[in-house]
């Protein structure tokens, strides 16, 4: 009897909860929420945080070889931003009652995913340009709608992230622009980077709508405002003219402006490749995880030493007081 009552109560609470979100009210960490809401948010926010943190690795590869001091300080600042974005998002995630250690554990054991784009190698300097322009460009399109998502801490973190992200894309596009104005080899390098990053960037928006399992629920909770395919189309429409402007060619022979729809038509995306990389068989999956786990393990003695030092200082203060 009591059990039926409580199930009914939960249903009731869920109804009120969905109504609050529909009214554009924000949900804060201590508010009642359905277990599925909590789990989905932990999953999405932590994936997002992990992506920021792992995203530092492909770019870190070029810090010491940036072609000028101007490029180097910009790249360093961008990577530092990504560390910051990871931190905002981990903190937001922790408000739902999961610890930072558990989150790291999920990343390091492969239980949690991160954006597959970071499993591709950065083989030339032009890749720094392509990543800023395309990967950050795609990320911005994915992230802007999240500034008004239903979970307060996530929305607040995203406002900060989006504010900081626009310099990332501009610095990337500027790198490409400079290369296309340089020697033929430099222009070729820029084109080669575009060739390699274009399709993986399109995959960043996730599987086609027909195959996307989370879309409907995520729309309801405002974790998504537009579908994967809509966002992908928006990215293509905005990026093609940018490529034209600097004389680069999008590596898609089927790409064509469609007068009727007002959008670009584009070729088939290789979803087999996408799923292969998601499942861990991308060119750099192992390398990225080894670097990440290595950094965590090699840093352990520093974290421990800092804790011991903090305790020693605290004790000294207490002893003085006595």
């Amino acid at each position: 009897m009591t059990r039926t009552m409580s199930e009914e109560q939960i249903k009731n609470l869920e109804k009120q909860f969905e109504a609050r979100i529909a009214r554009d009210e924000k949900i804060e960490p201590k508010d009642w929420m359905p277990e599925k809401y909590r789990k989905t948010h932990i999953r999405q926010m932590s994936q997002h945080a992990h992506s920021e943190v792992v995203g530092m690795l492909p770019e870190g590869n070029w810090i010491t070889r940036a072609p000028s001091l101007r490029r180097k300080v910009a790249l360093l600042a961008k990577i530092q931003d990504e560390a910051g974005h990871g931190l905002y998002l981990y903190s937001a995630c922790e408000t739902l009652g999961i610890s930072r250690d558990e989150l790291y554990e999920q990343l390091h054991t492969g239980k949690a995913k991160y954006s597959s784009i970071f499993n591709y190698p950065t083989v030339t300097w032009a890749d720094m340009g392509a990543i800023g322009w395309l990967v950050d460009g795609a990320a911005i399109i994915n992230q802007v709608p999240l500034c008004s998502t239903s979970f307060g801490p996530y929305a607040r973190a995203m406002v900060r992230v989006c504010k900081e992200e626009s310099f990332h894309q501009r610095q990337g596009y500027e790198i490409m622009l400079k290369l296309t104005k340089g020697a033929p080899e430099q222009k070729e390098m820029a084109q080669d980077a575009l060739n390699r990053w274009w399709w993986p960037s399109l995959m960043m928006f996730g599987p086609p709508d027909a195959e996307s399992i989370h879309t409907e629920q995520s729309m309801k909770w405002k974790l998504k405002r537009k579908t994967n395919d809509e966002l992908r189309q928006q990215f293509i429409d905005q990026t093609v003219p940018q490529a034209d402007l600097i004389g680069l060619t999008i590596p898609d022979p089927e790409l064509k402006w469609n007068e009727e729809t007002g959008h670009y038509d584009f070729g088939e995306i290789n979803w087999d490749e996408f799923w292969q990389v998601v499942k861990g068989h991308g060119p750099c999956n192992k390398e990225r995880m080894n670097a990440r786990v290595g950094a965590w393990e090699h840093g352990e003695w520093v974290r421990d030493a800092a804790m011991v030092y903090a305790e020693k200082k605290e004790n000294r203060k207490l002893n003085k007081a006595v």
Binding site: L87, S91, A157, A306, Y309, A310
Partner: peptide, 11 residues
């Protein structure tokens, strides 16, 4: 503004 982890107040 948000939160973070640190060993002590100074950090």
């Amino acid at each position: 503004f948000g939160s973070l982890h640190a060993a002590d107040a100074e950090m």
